[in-house]
Amino acid sequence: MTLPHILLLPGWLGSGPEHWQRRWAARYGDTVVEQADWEVPRRGDWVARLEDVILAQTAPVALVGHSLGCHLIDAWASSSRHTDRVVCALLVAPPDLHGSQLPAVLMPWRRALAQPPLPFPATVAASADDPYCRLAAAKRLAERWGAGFVDLGPCGHVNAESGLGDWPQGRHLLDELVRRSSHPASPFND
């Protein structure tokens, strides 16, 4: 069985060089999906970019979103006709887009809560002390997305400032999710 290609989806402002996503790209050869504008994240542009990257792959993909990248996965999945190309998704530290502290530039990302669940296996991994999302809100997101849930304990926003280095626990979560996912791993025909 061919392993899926891992696509890493940073959140608002991107992931710096010490972020586990950039470290995974360097260590494992995963692909960071770069956006044209990290400061003003236009949902339609980000979704279109993700669609382009997924369609360019010749094998199935596993998506790993951090922060706003989690909501990108949701927005893409609700509009794409190519969700069958995704083996699974790991959604790490999704922010609460309905919280009172949401920056104005992220307001357009708010969506009605009655969205369908993700059409592929997913796991939400959230921190007990994430300043952008309380654990209860992260659990509600997992339920809405039809995803499993992992409480990571206290590790902030699960970013470079959390001091996770290569974040082996996260890689283990991803490896287990990929292993459990049943998806035909063959090249795609258009």
Rank of each mutant, 00 (worst) to 15 (best):
M1H: 06
T2Y: 08
L3V: 15
I6D: 10
L8V: 02
L9S: 08
L9T: 04
P10D: 00
G11P: 07
L13A: 10
S15G: 01
E18C: 11
Q21P: 06
R23W: 10
R23T: 04
W24P: 04
W24H: 07
Y28D: 15
G29A: 01
V32W: 01
V32T: 12
V33K: 03
E34R: 11
E34T: 06
A36L: 12
A36P: 15
W38P: 07
W38H: 14
E39G: 13
V40P: 05
V40F: 14
R43A: 08
D45C: 10
V47C: 04
V47W: 09
I54R: 00
I54H: 05
L55C: 10
L55Q: 13
A56D: 12
T58G: 09
A59I: 08
P60V: 14
A62L: 05
A62V: 09
A62T: 08
V64M: 03
V64R: 03
G65A: 07
S67R: 06
L68Y: 09
G69E: 12
C70S: 07
H71K: 15
L72C: 07
I73Y: 02
D74S: 13
D74R: 01
A75T: 00
A75I: 01
W76T: 11
A77N: 06
R81V: 09
T83I: 08
D84K: 13
V86H: 00
V86Q: 05
V87P: 02
C88G: 09
A89F: 05
A93S: 09
A93Q: 04
P94K: 06
P94C: 04
P95A: 01
H98T: 03
G99S: 07
P103E: 15
M107A: 13
M107H: 15
M107R: 14
R110C: 06
R110K: 13
R111D: 05
A112T: 01
L113V: 06
A114H: 05
P117T: 11
P117W: 00
P119R: 12
P119T: 09
P121D: 02
A122V: 08
A125T: 12
A126G: 02
S127A: 08
A128Y: 00
D130H: 03
P131M: 03
P131T: 05
P131V: 01
C133V: 01
C133M: 09
R134Q: 14
R134T: 03
R134S: 05
R134C: 10
R134M: 11
L135Q: 06
A136R: 00
A137K: 05
A138W: 05
K139E: 13
K139S: 05
K139R: 15
R140W: 00
A142Y: 01
E143V: 04
A147T: 02
A147M: 04
A147E: 05
V150E: 01
V150I: 12
L152T: 14
L152C: 07
G153S: 08
V158R: 08
V158N: 00
V158I: 07
G163R: 13
G163T: 14
G163S: 03
G165Q: 03
G165W: 05
G165E: 03
D166F: 15
W167K: 06
P168D: 14
P168Y: 15
Q169M: 04
E176M: 12
E176T: 13
V178I: 14
V178T: 04
R180V: 06
R180S: 09
S181W: 10
S181L: 03
S182R: 06
S182A: 12
S182Q: 14
P184R: 14
P187V: 04
F188D: 13
N189E: 11
D190N: 13
